[in-house]
Design a protein around this nucleic acid. Structure first.
Lengths: 350, 350
DNA sequence: GTGAAAGCGCTAACAT
DNA sequence: ATGTTAGCGCTTTCAC
C-alpha cells in the first residue's frame, strides 16, 4: 500500500509552494494558467487524490447532505431519493441516507448521527408518529438548514416542500361526486401528518362544496398498508348501506381494498368507485386500473436538494422561502368511471 | 452561532490533558473509571460533538461505505438499500449512495467520487453495459475492499453476493415443463450481466434435462422494461406456433407482457403460462397473479454490508471468501398453473 | 493513569 | 502571481 500523495509532494515536484498548488487545484482565479496546467498534470501523473478530511477540517464544510426518511423501499420514496441523488451528484455533494422505520426514536438517533457527521444540510420526511421536532433544533441553532419534504412540520426556520394535498384530495373527491357518488368513504393515515390531515380537509370541503353531508363516520384511519386495506375492505363490506365511492390516501391500500372487495363480489367501479394516491406502478396493474393522484416524487427530490444547496450557497434565504408546492394531478382510470361502457364494467367485475 | 466545543475545552473544564480526554471519550481501557465519567459528563454538559474530520484525518478511516447501483427506484434495489442501511447504521457506518443510471460513464465517475470520498469499502451492482471493471482497480490496489452484489463481475480479489440464478431459472423452467409446456420462450436482458447469463443457462439446461429442444430462436433479449414487454408480446403474438410458456427475467417485463397478451385475447395461463423474476409487488396484483422467483433483496443488502464490515475489521479475509449465494425460491401463482380449474381459467381469460 | 508534543493534509490570512 | 505561516481537532507515541 503506497503512501498517499499530498500537495506537498506535488509542490516539491513542480517547484512551487503548497499554497499555490492548493490554489491551482481549486481553480483559484489568481493563479497563472500555465502553473495550473503544470500542477494538474503533476497531480494526475503522481496519482494524487484530494483529501476531503483535511479540507473539511479546515473549511468546516463537508459537502454532505443528510437525508432521513421513514422508509426507503416504497416506489414514491425511492423516486425521491433517485431525484435527490441526481442533483446532489451534479453539484458535488454526497448524500448520507438513513431511515427512521416510522419511529420517532430512530428518527432522533438518525438526527444525532447526522449531526455528528456534520452534514451541511438536512432533508427530512417525518416518521409516522413524530409529535415534535425538537431533535432538529440543534441543526437550526447551528444554522444548518433543515428542509422538510412530503411529511412536513411547521417551523418558521424550515422550508417545506409539498404537493397541494388538500387540492388533490378535493379534486379526487369531486371527481367521485361527478361520477354520481353520494356516499363516499375516506381512508387515511395518522392525522398528525400534514399529508393525511390535508387530504382529509380536501375530502371534507369537496363534500361540503357539493352540498353533500360530511360525517366523521365515513373517515377511517389506519396504517395504509396492504393488511390494513384488507381490514378496511371488510369493514366496508359490513356497512349498511355500503358506500358508492372510496378515496384512499395511498395506492398500496387502495389496491388491497380493491382486491378484497372484488373477491367479495363487489363490482368496481359500478358498485363502488375507488381512488388512490401516489400513482405507484401497481395502480396501472390492478384491474380495473386505479384512478389516483400522480405524486411527482423524482421531481420533489430534485427540488429539495436544489433548494437546500441554494440555502447553503446563500443564494436563497431559508427564512424568506417557506413552502414550495409542486403540482400534482388527478389521473383518471377505470376504477372511478361509473359511466363506463357495459363491456368495461363486465371486465372490471371479473 | 456559538463556537464548537473541542476536547481542549473539555480538558480545561475538568483539569486534564486533551490526550486523556480523547482516551476517555474513546473508552480507552487505561483511563480511570471516575475520570471517564467526569469527562463524559463535562462533554454532554458543554454540548461537545465529536469531530469526525479531525479523527478521520488522523486515523485515515472514514466509517463510510460507498454504494453504486444502476438505479435506486426499483422495488428490488430499494429493498437492498434498506437492508444495507439497517446494518450499516447499527455498526456505526454511513452509507454514501450513488446511481450509475445504467451507464458505464456514470459508473466510472461515481467510482472516482467514491475514491475521493475515501470510502472504507465499496458495494457495487454493475450497470447494464459495463464491460470491464478497471475503474475499481484503484480501490483494490489501495486495499479497499470491493464487493459486488446481484450484478457481479468475476475478480479474484472481490467478493460477490448473488442468488443461484441458474438454479432458480432451472426451477422456473422445469415448473413450466411440468405444467405441460413444450414450447417455451425465454425473455432476458443483456447477457454480459451474470444474472441474465445464468438465468439463460438455467433455462437451457432445464430444457435439455427434460429432453426438450433448446433453440436460440426462443431466446429474446431486451431491456426488460415495461415498453420492451409490449414489444416482446407483439413478437410472441406473431410467432407460429405461439409458445405455450414464457419465462421472463424480471417481473416488470413479465407483467407488461401478460397485460399485452391478455388484451390480444390470449388466455393466461391456459394458452400461455408466464413466469417472472423478483417477486415485485406488482406480481401479486396482476391477474392472474404472477408465478415468480422470490429474490431476497433486503437480506442481500444486509449480507453485503455485514460481509464488507467483516473485511474491514479483518474478521474475514476477502481473498478466501469468493462468492456468497443466497437462497431464492420459486413462488407458484396462477399465471403458470395450466392445471387450473375452469373457474380460474375463465377468470384469467377476462 | 496521565501528560507533552508532533503531525495527519489542507486552506486562508498576510506578506511579498 | 506566489510564498510563509499558522492552525483546523484529533490521536498516539513516548515519557513520567
Amino acid at each position: 500500500m503506497d503512501k498517499e500523495i499530498t500537495i506537498y509532494d506535488i509542490a516539491k515536484g513542480v517547484g512551487l509552494s503548497p499554497a499555490t498548488v492548493s490554489r491551482a487545484l481549486n481553480d483559484h482565479p489568481a493563479v497563472n494558467k500555465n502553473t495550473k496546467k503544470k500542477v494538474f498534470e503533476a497531480a494526475t501523473q503522481m496519482g494524487y487524490r484530494f483529501n476531503m478530511f483535511a479540507s473539511n477540517l479546515r473549511t468546516q464544510r463537508t459537502n454532505t447532505i443528510g437525508v432521513i426518511v421513514p422508509r426507503l423501499n416504497s416506489p414514491f420514496m425511492s423516486s425521491v431519493i433517485a431525484g435527490m441523488e441526481k442533483i446532489a451528484n451534479e453539484a458535488g455533494y454526497n448524500l448520507i441516507i438513513s431511515q427512521s422505520l416510522e419511529t420517532v426514536q430512530k428518527e432522533i438517533s438518525n438526527a444525532k448521527a447526522m449531526f455528528n457527521s456534520r452534514v451541511d444540510g438536512l432533508l427530512v420526511s417525518l416518521a409516522y408518529d413524530t409529535d415534535n421536532i425538537d431533535h432538529f433544533t440543534p441543526f437550526i441553532d447551528k444554522g444548518i438548514p433543515v428542509l422538510f419534504f412530503d411529511r412536513t412540520a411547521e417551523h418558521k426556520k424550515c422550508i417545506g416542500i409539498v404537493i397541494d394535498n388538500m387540492q388533490a384530495a378535493h379534486k379526487a373527491t369531486t371527481h367521485l361526486i361527478e361520477q354520481g357518488c353520494t356516499n363516499i368513504v375516506h381512508i387515511t393515515g395518522n392525522l398528525k401528518r400534514n399529508v393525511y390531515a390535508d387530504r382529509l380537509k380536501g375530502f371534507k370541503y369537496a363534500l361540503i362544496d357539493s352540498n353533500l353531508p360530511y360525517k366523521e363516520s365515513s373517515v377511517m384511519t389506519c396504517s395504509l398498508t396492504e393488511e390494513a386495506g384488507i381490514e378496511a375492505a371488510k369493514k366496508i363490506l359490513k356497512m349498511d348501506p355500503m358506500p358508492d365511492g372510496i378515496f384512499v390516501a395511498n395506492d398500496t391500500c387502495a389496491v388491497s381494498i380493491t382486491k378484497t372487495l372484488k373477491q367479495a363480489g363487489v363490482s368496481i367501479p359500478h358498485d363502488i368507485a375507488v381512488i388512490g394516491f401516489n400513482n405507484d406502478p401497481i395502480s396501472r396493474v390492478i384491474e380495473p386500473n386505479l384512478t389516483t393522484i400522480h405524486y411527482p416524487g423524482y421531481e420533489m427530490g430534485e427540488v429539495a436538494v436544489r433548494n437546500l444547496i441554494n440555502c447553503l450557497d446563500e443564494v436563497s434565504d431559508i427564512v424568506s422561502t417557506n413552502t414550495i408546492t409542486l403540482r400534482a394531478e388527478l389521473i383518471i382510470r377505470e376504477s372511478s368511471l361509473k359511466g363506463a361502457s357495459k363491456a368495461e364494467r363486465l371486465l372490471s367485475a371479473s
